[in-house]
Nucleic acid binder design. Structure first.
Lengths: 336, 336
DNA sequence: ACCCCTTATTCTCATATTCAGCATAACTCA
DNA sequence: TGAGTTATGCTGAATATGAGAATAAGGGGT
């Protein structure tokens, strides 16, 4: 038997305290919903942004009382406005920062953030709404044409920041975090670590939000550090991108972004746009076909520049057949 | 280029509505924190429960104002009570059910649930606190000795419930959900689908909570349907178990439950206790050693009944070496 | 001392999956 | 007609995985 018995009355103290505190009511705070609404047009992942007091922000609204659950609330809320079906809605994370304030604009104390996928990417509407490429906010995440040049200055600043650590252990920790997140020194680029990378840039003061929130002067990076967003919306976006990049590997969510019929290359380009890396064409199609994710429509694509391609559609049945029918893209793959 | 342009002014309408609503403030609601605190003693996964008005419940408390983030709040809150370090804390999900009421006990409108892992499993404390095997609440999840006998009556009732569907399509959907979740008809048991299974049982009225919440008489199952919990705590527990079972595959979180030094078989038994299935011994140790998750301590185990075993410890460095250093137990493995 | 039982540890082997290209087909455009 | 472009089929090497044989090293009983 494993020897995990120790400590004594700790569990008891825990339970007592918890019971006592649990019986008091928490003081009310304002609760908000934020939505990262994603579409994929022209092989460019887009996020719907609005302008609030000049700053770019994610669509956000208050939690309404009339809905039974949060997700149903969000779904209704968005669908009412768009008459567009949200194919996929997923709760991302609940951010509860006590002092969520940005440029004088007080934000709700608690924000439940959602990720939603839509098929449409209509051109930008009124002045304050726009579909933006998500790489506008995290340009270092697009490795489709190889390692982005703008990573060079970023990494240089990060390394310098690591050396400013108080203790030696802290410096080593920073260096290891940087290496892991940015694929330096042996480690390879992992496209899912979007949040980790953003947080490093934030801590190192390399994104505008850091300067704004902490008052400390940011290292000027001449636009290579991406566009700023209101409050912590860029952190929420980073969370969403990371989550989506992971999710497409074990759930068939990409198809929520595809038109009813598509070619395998279109599917591949969309996956590449989301994950930010190039994939091996022949292996990709083998994967997709082997797993029975798509079926023939019978027709061929209008013309793709070369030999016409079969048009396929998503096989909805796979949702009920296997528990994890994603595009199991092996991590660490880096090919053309 | 993909033809995803369509619809026209939908995005515009969406953005307008969102902006307008976002400028109003949501009415305050009470916010709660609930914790699923897990320990693993004697190869039995334990969850810390308390008694509230006679019902078994998860430790829960109000959100306090003095902490910067939710997780820090929870950490402090628990650590203050236990003087025990929470090795691993993860936000699980935010439950926002408008009418979260149970047996007259009004619950917070919004609950942020956390999963925490502790190394200790002290004996049950005062009358209202106890470490309970989590299989007490979801007995059908323990497949370590083969398919649990109590699944037979459960499946029978589920099949019957499927036939009561309104439409034919609905019936087929139910049958497919049941088959997928419980590994019937071709599909194999997937230990991660804990929540899916609980929700089916709930919908079919086979767990006591369904009767209580919906007023509809539950099918009596003579205790095979597991122990009841307050409010939606059993759903939260199911979410936690499923998440943890998935997480151990790509993050080294099991080690948070292990003593400082352990044998490979102890590690295997713990993983089996969590995932609820038996693993192949030789392959398990190959996996663990190949991935460099552990290192020698030099000493040997006191005696395990047979040949003495090496004692190993977790290699903390792997956290910084690879992004996904879990026990990549292949799904669908079912061995002794 | 010897036999039996139990667990630990090392290896093998067959199979499946993945990676990386090669080769060929089918179209457009100049 | 030939060059360029994309589609599609196929192969061979490298890895990873599943299952189990074989051997090692303790304890306990006779």
């Amino acid at each position: 038997m494993i020897s995990v018995m120790q400590g004594g009355r700790a569990a008891e103290r825990l339970a007592e305290g918890v019971v006592a505190e649990g019986r008091r009511r928490g003081q009310p705070r304002s609760i908000g919903l934020s939505a990262v609404i994603i579409a994929a047009a022209s092989y460019d992942p887009r996020v719907l942004t609005i302008r609030v007091d000049g700053a770019e922000a994610l669509p956000s609204g208050p939690l309404e009382a009339e809905h039974r659950t949060l997700e149903i609330g969000l779904r209704n809320w968005v669908e009412r406005q768009t008459s567009e079906h949200l194919g996929y809605v997923e709760q991302l994370y609940t951010f509860g920062d006590r002092d969520r304030v940005s440029a004088g604009m007080a934000a709700p104390a608690l924000v439940v953030a959602y990720l939603a996928l839509v098929r449409e990417a209509a051109p930008a509407g009124p002045v304050d709404a726009a579909w933006q490429s998500w790489y506008r906010y995290v340009p270092w995440e697009d490795w489709r044409d190889g390692r982005p040049a703008l990573l060079a200055p970023i990494e240089e600043r990060l390394e310098r920041w690591a050396t400013t650590a108080q203790t030696d252990a802290q410096r080593r920790l920073r260096e290891e975090r940087i290496g892991l997140a940015f694929g330096l020194g042996g480690a390879s680029w992992n496209e899912e670590l979007v949040l980790e990378r953003y947080e490093l840039l934030y801590e190192a003061g390399l994104v505008a939000e850091a300067e704004r929130d902490l008052g400390q002067p940011a290292e000027r990076l001449d636009g290579t550090a991406g566009a700023e967003m209101a409050v912590d919306h860029r952190r929420i976006l980073a969370t969403a991108i990371g989550r989506l990049r992971g999710k497409i590997k074990y759930r068939p969510v990409v198809f929520e972004l595809m038109p009813p019929a598509f070619t395998l290359l279109q599917l591949q380009r969309t996956v590449e746009a989301l994950s930010g890396v190039k994939l091996h064409k022949q292996n990709f199609r083998r994967l997709v076909e082997q797993q029975g994710l798509v079926e023939e429509t019978g027709s061929m694509s209008a013309a793709t520049g070369g030999r016409p391609a079969r048009l396929v559609r998503f096989r909805r049945e796979v949702l009920l057949e296997r528990p994890a029918p994603g595009l199991r893209l092996r991590a660490g793959r880096r090919v053309s």
